[in-house]
Design a protein around this nucleic acid. Structure first.
Lengths: 306, 306
DNA sequence: GCCAAACTATGATTCAAACTCATAATTTTC
DNA sequence: GAAAATTATGAGTTTGAATCATAGTTTGGC
């Protein structure tokens, strides 16, 4: 008659409620779908009550499952808070976290993540290292940054690399652009177009690096600092752009511009975090990475944790 | 960097804080001392901080351990509450629990336990089956009671028997009684004394059943319903009594009467719960047994859980 | 201060819970 | 109604949590 309930089960319930789907819940917890299915069955046997309604998609919680999810909502934040408090006991409250960013759109999700982090670690000094750097990792070496957000895994024994998430990039066309006739764009389609981008070097654009350069295509470029401005240019037929789908979801829904996948598999961009080796074990650094992942997956549509 | 913390660990921390002692904490959790030692080491490795101060008896928690204990205080009641809520979903709120009692002193600890239980299960009708019954188990058979508190394990396939706790009985003497000269009393010492007891049959008195009858000794009896009255009689040299130590602790501390162990090993009494087979799985019945154990071990000195 | 008793730590071993894998069964979608 | 996606299930594996046996410490009495 002893209780078998553990925090693990509460985390599972929340993941199921949030994703409405065992398979995705399992991914979020870094477990297999099978593990969750077994776990759930054991819990339901223990309480002798169903916890989720199987005959519905998305999966919904039963009243009993809901009670547990409410419990989870109530206590998991307390647990996280206590763990942070202990990390602070060990390391002290203070510290600094200078963030180097190489991609413009990052700011969209970085800001909310930083806000959340600030409430957990008010004594940690948060900074964004100004300007955009071709090689943010060198900033780590020079101790001008503590954490870099990069788009390719850095294979380097002095650097620890942690995965953030991936998302797909889409080509953006004016609604009446002739290329909208195609279901997807290939490298060749860009040859005669003007490419509208943020003002960064070629090698920092995933589209150029992964698609156009391999195909030997070098379209005209035009740049703008702001996402809205880029969209404005696209809409007025000055060229085409390639941006993360989540950053333009809103404009697509309003019908301002049209999106098309790039290449048959889509153009998938990844983001990673780089820190000087060993630094990833500092509690507030680990917590910041965790926060970036959680906040982003929550706010950005179509983002997948790595 | 994933958290390994589980509810199990929080329960351990509380047990350590409450008992100040790994060995007793382990008993309380029905684990070995070794298990707790390993568990604690793993936790401390995880947080890279000591959680309890080893060089002190009783064991004390470090600030980090204290943080976790506070967390436990905050969330374990919530967990228990949610589990009861789910049990109620399954079984409905209501039910009845008629308690048959065979021992007089039981009321001292039964009342607080019933009070606690009532706050958890307000819709369960609590009753004490009036009068004292030589055979409370027969009340279960006749469905005149749902739960009996008995002093010997009932070996019966229709009855489920659950352990409560044990405690030692002491002989009570007037402070100037000649027998106070002896470090302990043996059966023979009772031969010429008047035994003051509650008004119950011989076979329900542990002293008679386990010590005097086997020795063929049958002292004079005098009875009283009330513990204070019995003590009053003892103090005024009308005879000697045998009562649970915890029920007279208070009077002993004030020096009203003197206590002596009975026989070399002491006279250990046990209490158990009997319910009709299967009934022990009803959530509120299981919870009542749990409550009786917890409340008693908390309030009564020298009581050991079975 | 020393000895016995009580308590805690540790390594080896056992055991069971929890996970993965492979695949069957079911549900959803088009 | 077929294909795709999702969930369930049984077998097998891994992991970590427990026990056991015992060594090492601490405490308390004399």
């Amino acid at each position: 008659m002893q209780s078998i309930l553990e925090l693990r089960h509460l985390r599972t319930l929340l993941a199921i409620r949030d994703t409405g789907n065992l398979t995705r819940a399992a991914e979020r917890l870094f477990l297999t779908q099978s593990a969750l299915s077994h776990q759930l069955r054991l819990l339901e046997e223990h309480f002798a009550l169903p916890l989720v309604m199987r005959k519905s998609s998305p999966l919904k919680l039963t009243p009993a499952g809901d009670k547990l999810a409410q419990l989870a909502d109530a206590i998991l934040p307390q647990v996280a808070h206590a763990e942070r408090a202990i990390a602070k006991l060990r390391e002290g409250e203070a510290g600094q976290l200078r963030i180097a960013v190489e991609c413009h759109t990052c700011f969209d999700w970085l800001m909310p993540a930083m806000d959340t982090f600030r409430t957990h670690w008010p004594e940690v000094e948060l900074d964004i290292v100004s300007g955009f750097h071709a090689d943010p990792v060198s900033l780590l070496y020079e101790d001008r940054a503590d954490l870099a957000i990069i788009s390719e895994v850095e294979d380097n024994p002095d650097i620890a690399c942690l995965p953030l998430f991936s998302f797909d990039m889409v080509a953006l066309l004016a609604n009446d652009h002739p290329l909208t006739a195609k279901p997807r764009l290939e490298a060749a389609d860009f040859a005669t177009e003007t490419l509208i981008t943020y003002p960064v070097a070629d090698e920092m654009l995933d589209l150029v690096k992964k698609v156009l350069k391999p195909a030997g295509i070098k379209p005209q470029r035009r740049t703008s600092e702001l996402t809205v401005a880029i969209l404005q240019l696209v809409a007025s037929r000055r060229g085409i752009a390639a941006l993360p789908r989540w950053s333009v979801q809103h404009y697509l829904e309003k019908g301002y511009v049209t999106a098309r996948p790039i290449t048959a598999n889509g153009l998938i961009a990844e983001l990673h975090v780089a820190v000087n080796k060993g630094r990833e074990e500092t509690a507030y650094v680990a917590d910041f990475v965790q926060t970036m992942r959680e906040v982003s997956v929550l706010n950005l549509p179509g983002v997948t944790l790595l």
